[in-house]
Simulated scan of single mutants.
Amino acid sequence: MYIVMFEFVVKPGREADFLAAWPRVTQGIYLFKGSLGSRLHKSEDGQWIAYAQWPDRDTFERAQDVGMNEAYHREHQAMRDALNLEETRIVYKMDVACDYLQRRPFAVE
């Protein structure tokens, strides 16, 4: 699995726009580009941090050349419009060394 971590810088007064577009953009990237989804976090000091999961580095790199349909493209543009793109950045690109996230309770023996 391959992870890409982002730091998003949202324009003042545009958080609602960013948050409204985020789920649809994530869904479009999942449906059209092959991601495994992503999570968005807000740090204690107000930074927006996200990480996207990909099956592998090659799928992530190829995704840059894959388009989405018009509805998802509009959502992507709306999200970009809410961001300060000059300050938004990829923080890390990394391979998963050990994955132990669980969506269900751990089976404790």
Results as ranks from 00 to 15, higher is better:
R24I: 04
Q27M: 05
E61W: 04
F18V: 05
I3G: 04
Y30T: 09
V9E: 13
Q27V: 01
R89M: 06
A20E: 13
W22V: 13
F18W: 10
F60W: 14
W48G: 00
R24C: 03
V91D: 03
G28L: 00
A20H: 12
Q47H: 08
A97I: 13
V25E: 04
K42N: 06
L85K: 05
E75F: 05
I90K: 05
R74I: 09
R89T: 07
G34N: 02
N84T: 05
E44F: 14
A20W: 08
F6G: 02
V10T: 00
V108F: 11
V91M: 08
Q102R: 10
N69L: 12
R80L: 15
G13M: 03
K93A: 07
H73W: 09
W22P: 07
H76S: 09
A50S: 04
A16T: 07
N69M: 13
Y2P: 06
L83P: 05
F106I: 15
H41A: 07
T26K: 08
G37Q: 08
G34H: 00
W48Q: 04
Y51P: 07
H76A: 10
M79C: 06
G28S: 00
F60K: 10
R57T: 05
A78R: 07
T88W: 00
R103A: 15
F60P: 04
L36A: 05
L101S: 15
Y72D: 04
R62M: 07
R57H: 11
L36S: 08
M79F: 10
D95A: 12
D81C: 11
S35V: 06
V25C: 10
G46I: 10
A63V: 01
E86T: 11
Y92W: 15
N69A: 13
E15A: 12
F8S: 12
H76F: 11
R14Q: 14
F32I: 03
P55D: 11
H73D: 12
S43F: 05
Q64L: 09
G37P: 04
A21Q: 01
I29Q: 12
K33D: 08
A16C: 02
R103N: 14
Y100A: 15
G28F: 00
P12W: 07
F18Q: 03
D95H: 06
G28P: 00
K11V: 08
Q27A: 11
I29E: 08
Y51D: 09
L31R: 13
F18I: 04
P105D: 02
P105A: 01
E75I: 02
N69F: 14
T59E: 06
M5Y: 05
Y51W: 15
A52S: 11
L19H: 02
P12Q: 10
Q64K: 14
I49A: 04
D99M: 02
L101Q: 15
Q102S: 11
D81L: 13
I49M: 08
R104L: 06
C98P: 04
E70F: 10
G28R: 00
G34E: 02
E61G: 02
F18T: 03
R80A: 14
